[in-house]
Design a protein around this nucleic acid. Structure first.
Lengths: 338, 338
DNA sequence: CGAGGGATTTGAAGCGCTTTAAACACGAGT
DNA sequence: ACTCGTGTTTAAAGCGCTTCAAATCCCTCG
């Protein structure tokens, strides 16, 4: 049990072949005959051979490491990270995480990743300006996840969800339930907020409905506070809409809470849709209808993009990949009351 | 800029010394003279030298990798992971994460970590039985975080928070606010739930107060549902306590919600304390008084334990390290109404 | 039956760093 | 002047794997 680790050479000796052949077989490289493959694989299995990544990475001059920038405070990021982990592993890559924290900005986190010899970087919803990302993309294969990006000289790969479709889905859902007075609570500045609002506006226009957007700016944007303020504005503002779409779940929860406290039944009097499918939205007493992103697919596409660059020899960024969000219908939406 | 990577040899050549000396200096090993140190450091800095981990790990037969098992769905785990990352980096170690997911049990995740040649493992709140962990501890230096462990033949290091102190803090806080009818909502089976309940019972007994424990079993334990049921039981059960301590925040939120819906003011009529300091507990409309763990300290101690084994030559597990939790007083607790 | 050629296999040279033992320098001790 | 010892520096041998040119094998073809 405590014997020395099995090495490539041991496997080679066991099958009476050269280390070179064994290496070839183990990596699935072309060359070795079917018979050789079988023998080597059997022996490797039997001896419990585990390649030494350090040696292999040194010899091949490849680290097979993908650097990932996440904000660990976000459950969404964590979720994507887990899926990336799996997807990367399946392709023979490992992940190096670097978390951005209050004391540790994006730049420093990226620096760390570069230092650890990552061959490619995946950034989840980076805040850096587009041209900064362009510079980075010129240095290393880069995938920007969950964010739209203006054109830059050296474009990174972009994989994101169609946020405008998400809010459109919400509007469609509500419209089908008979609602026509559908308000939207905005999410402040940022490309994501813009996309979501645009989706709402277009969807309303397409149905000939009158939009009503409540401002979402304020500090901090995208939080319950915004929802609380919006609810108050709604309650003061004369006629109540029969449905509200919020920029995100936190805002929606603020709305939900304030409306309930003021005796407004959700979804009886007002239907409510959030965005993000946050874990807490699934909690029994919230059970919020919301729009979510397919984190597994996002992760899968990101890894594919990386592999295409690293192993597939692709040089240019692929065209932006835009995935569709899903609508999770839960308990905060219902038919318009007669 | 795109020039070849600077190697150890380049630095050596730059200062006219041997690679051996440079290696010694760069690792802070004893030997080199002060003058040599200075010259080498200056040159390394100037050339922007970055050691190649793969090469160094191959040559030194050390990976300087710490494997971490987390459940990424838990924000608490994520938080600990981030701090571990920092602490490990400061000691010259890197982290390899392996997430346990529904499709990927603890055993498999640990297997992955072992495969990636980690020198030590840190498990956050593992579910595995004690003797399974004992076996593992016999194989590799092991730190068990956030969980009490019965004695086993080969003991891992254990770093955890005194859960019994946490609920005691809650009771003390409430008692100081004038409450004497303090109920507790249990968290089902498991050592953590037991510790928290015991802390409550002892604290009540110590103050001569009559305990009242509401069952927390049910599926799934530790969720809002449990809190909802407990609140209903409380509302049906004659006299309402003036304060409730819940096994965790999710349970507390279930309570909070159900009480509010039934017209019970929190904290006016009933004060409420949760446990975990979950992110959503800080949300504006929840603002739950709760007990939390010092994740940074936990992470720090864990890394110290690892380093003591790996670099300090310690062979045996250190005695269990038990940290104190903190009480975050927020808006759900208040003085007992006159 | 030998040459030619594609399919396999392998010897050997590293990858960039650590490490060990040996070399060296220099002043003290005799 | 010469040996020693202490304190520094370094040559050289790998670490376990990949790579690539060169060697070998096995057929098919003329």
């Amino acid at each position: 049990m405590a014997g020395k680790r099995v090495r490539l050479g041991d496997v080679a000796a066991a099958v009476g072949a050269s280390p070179a052949s064994v290496s070839l077989v183990l990596r699935g490289a072309p060359g070795p005959s079917a018979e050789m493959r079988e023998r080597v694989l059997e022996a490797a299995q039997r001896l419990g051979y585990r390649p030494d990544r350090a040696a292999s990475s040194l010899a091949s001059r490849r680290s097979r490491l993908i650097g990932l920038l996440v904000d660990v405070r976000s459950p969404f990021h964590a979720d994507v990270a887990a899926h990336l982990q799996d997807a990367a592993e399946a392709r023979g890559y490992d992940l190096v995480l670097s978390t951005v924290t209050p004391s540790r900005g994006e730049d420093r986190a990226v620096e760390t990743l570069l230092d650890s010899r990552c061959e490619a970087l995946v950034l989840i919803g980076p805040d850096a300006p587009a041209d900064r990302l362009g510079e980075l993309a010129a240095t290393v294969p880069l995938v920007v996840l969950c964010r739209r990006l203006e054109p830059v000289s050296v474009a990174p790969d972009v994989v994101r969800t169609a946020d405008e479709v998400g809010t459109a889905l919400a509007v469609e859902h509500l419209h089908l339930l008979g609602h026509s007075m559908i308000a939207y609570v905005d999410g402040g500045p940022g490309t994501v907020a813009r996309d979501r609002r645009d989706g709402y506006l277009h969807a309303m226009a397409a149905r000939g409905l009158a939009p009503r957007v409540l401002p979402g700016a304020g500090t901090p944007p995208g939080t319950e506070i915004i929802g609380i303020r919006a609810a108050e504005a709604l309650l003061d503002g004369g006629e109540l809409p029969t449905a509200v779409v919020a920029f995100n779940d936190r805002t929606a929860v603020g709305l939900l809470d304030t409306l309930s406290r003021n005796g407004i039944d959700v979804p009886g009097e007002v239907s409510l849709v959030g965005y993000d499918d946050d874990p807490f939205s699934r909690m029994a007493h919230v059970d919020l209808t919301t729009v979510g992103q397919d984190t597994e697919a996002l992760a899968g596409r990101a890894v594919e993009a990386v592999v295409a660059r690293l192993d597939g020899g692709r040089e240019e960024a692929a065209p932006e990949q835009v995935l569709d969000p899903y609508l999770a219908v839960r308990r905060t939406t219902g038919p318009r009351r007669a």
